[in-house]
Computed example of a mutant assay.
Amino acid sequence: MNNNKGKLKEIQSTRGIAILAVVLIHITSIPLEVLPAGVPSHTVYTGINRALQFAVPLFLMVSALVLAYGIGTDGAIKWRDFYRKRWIRVVVPFMVWTTLYLSLLFITGHVGKVPTLKELLLWYGFGKGFYHLYFLSVVIQFYLVFPFLHVFWYRYRPSLVNTIIILATLQVAFYWINRMYLYPHFPYTASLLPSYIFPIGVGLWLGYNVSAWNHLWTRYRVLIGIFAILSGSFYVQQYLAVLAGHRINTFYFQMVWLLYATTIGICIIFLSRLLQQGACGKSAIIGKIGELSFGIYLVHPFFLMLWQRVFSPVTANEVHLFTCLGLVIILTLSGLVTYGLERTILAKPLYGIIRR
C-alpha cells in the first residue's frame, strides 16, 4: 500500500452526508408507522425516506474508493497483513456490537429463547443481530474478495465504459440468480455483497483513477446529474405506487435504485470536494461528523430506541417534533459518545482503531 499519498479530504464530508442520511432514514421510519397511509405528511416522509436510500451504497462506494486509492493499480497486497488489519478494523467491532445489541434485545425481552445454529449464523455472519449491522457484514464480504478484485484491476485496468458494462452485466445476472435460486432459501438480499456490485465497482474505478476525476466531472456532470434526478424520481414514484397497492416490475425497481444510489453518490463526492475547496464552517462540521461516522452508525440505533421510549408521538405535530428534535439529539449523543469512547481503551474492540 502506498502510504505517501495525500488524503482525499472530500471523503470525510461524503461520509458526513452519508451518515446524516442513515440517521434520517431510521428516524423517518417512525412517522411512517404512526401516520395513516395516504395523508400528505405520510407521503412526504415516505419520499424523504426513500430519497435517502443511497446512504448504505454510498458508504460501500466510499469504502471501495478509499481502499483502491490507498493501494493503487501498481500496489501489491500483502495478503496476511491485509486480512489481519481488516480483522481488527471491522470483524472484531462487528462481533462486539452484534453481541452488545443482542444483549440489549435479551434484556428488553425481544430475544428470550436459546438461539439456533441458523440464528447464530444470521446474527454473526450476515448482520441480522440488529437492523443496521448487515452493512458491516457486506463490508467484511467485500474485504474478503478485494485482493482478487485488485489482481483483476492490476492486470486489465478497465476503462470507465468497460467497467460500467461489466458491472451492469454482473448486477443484472445477480438479480436473476438471486430471484430464481437464492431468495426462496435466503431472503436477506441486503446482506449479500453482490447486491451492491454496481456502486462498489464504480467506487473501485474512482479510487484507482483519482487523476481522472476532474475530467470525469467536467465532461459528464450534467449527464450524471440527470441520471440521478430521473432515476431517483422513478424510484420514489415506484415505491409510492407499491404503497398505493399497485404492482411494479421489481427488476426495474432494483436496477433503478442502484443507478440512483451510484449517480447521486458521485454527485455527493464532488459536492463534498466543492465544500472542502470553499473551506466554510459547514464543511468543517460535516467533515467532523464524517470522522465520527463509523461510531455514529454503530451506536445511533440505541439512542433512537431510547428516544422512542422518551417520546411516543401520536399526532402529526408530535411526529414532526419527534423527527426534527430527535435528529439533533440522536446525532449529538451518538457523536459525543463516539468521540469519548475513541479516547479510551475501548476504541480498539468497538471501532477497530488505536486509542486517540
Rank of each mutant, 00 (worst) to 15 (best):
F174C: 05
I229V: 15
I224M: 09
V66R: 01
L258S: 05
L32D: 03
H110P: 06
L341D: 07
F322V: 02
L216E: 05
I165G: 11
G326Y: 01
I264S: 05
L204T: 01
P36Y: 11
Y134D: 14
N4D: 15
F148Q: 02
P36R: 06
W217N: 09
L346P: 14
G232R: 00
V23N: 00
V22W: 03
F294P: 03
V314T: 13
P115R: 14
S334Y: 02
A21V: 04
F135N: 04
V111I: 14
Y351C: 13
A316Q: 12
K7I: 14
L102R: 00
V328S: 06
G225D: 11
Y239V: 07
T332V: 11
G245Y: 06
K128N: 09
T43P: 03
A168R: 15
I140V: 13
I226Q: 13
I25M: 15
Y208K: 04
Y45E: 01
I286Y: 04
F146Q: 01
E318C: 00
W87G: 14
M1L: 15
T338D: 08
R80I: 10
L8A: 09
T28W: 02
V96Y: 05
V161F: 06
V328Q: 08
F270D: 07
L170S: 05
I286E: 00
G232Y: 01
I285K: 14
F94W: 09
F54E: 05
I286S: 03
W123R: 02
Q238I: 00
G245F: 07
Y154E: 10
V44C: 06
G225F: 11
W205I: 03
H246P: 11
V39F: 02
I107P: 02
L240A: 08
Y131A: 13
G326H: 00
N317G: 08
Y101Q: 02
A212M: 06
V39Q: 08
V161Y: 10
G38M: 06
I353N: 07
Y252V: 13
S41C: 06
P40K: 01
N4W: 07
A347Q: 12
N4V: 10
F253H: 14
F227V: 15
F303K: 01
T323I: 00
N162R: 11
H215Y: 07
W153M: 13
S283R: 07
L275K: 03
F130R: 04
F234N: 13
I266V: 15
I226W: 11
L58D: 02
I17F: 13
G245L: 09
L243M: 11
T169W: 05
K128A: 04
P57T: 05
L67I: 12
P349H: 09
E10R: 04
S272M: 09
F174I: 12
D81W: 02
H42L: 03
L32Q: 08
N249Y: 05
F135W: 04
L258E: 04
T323K: 00
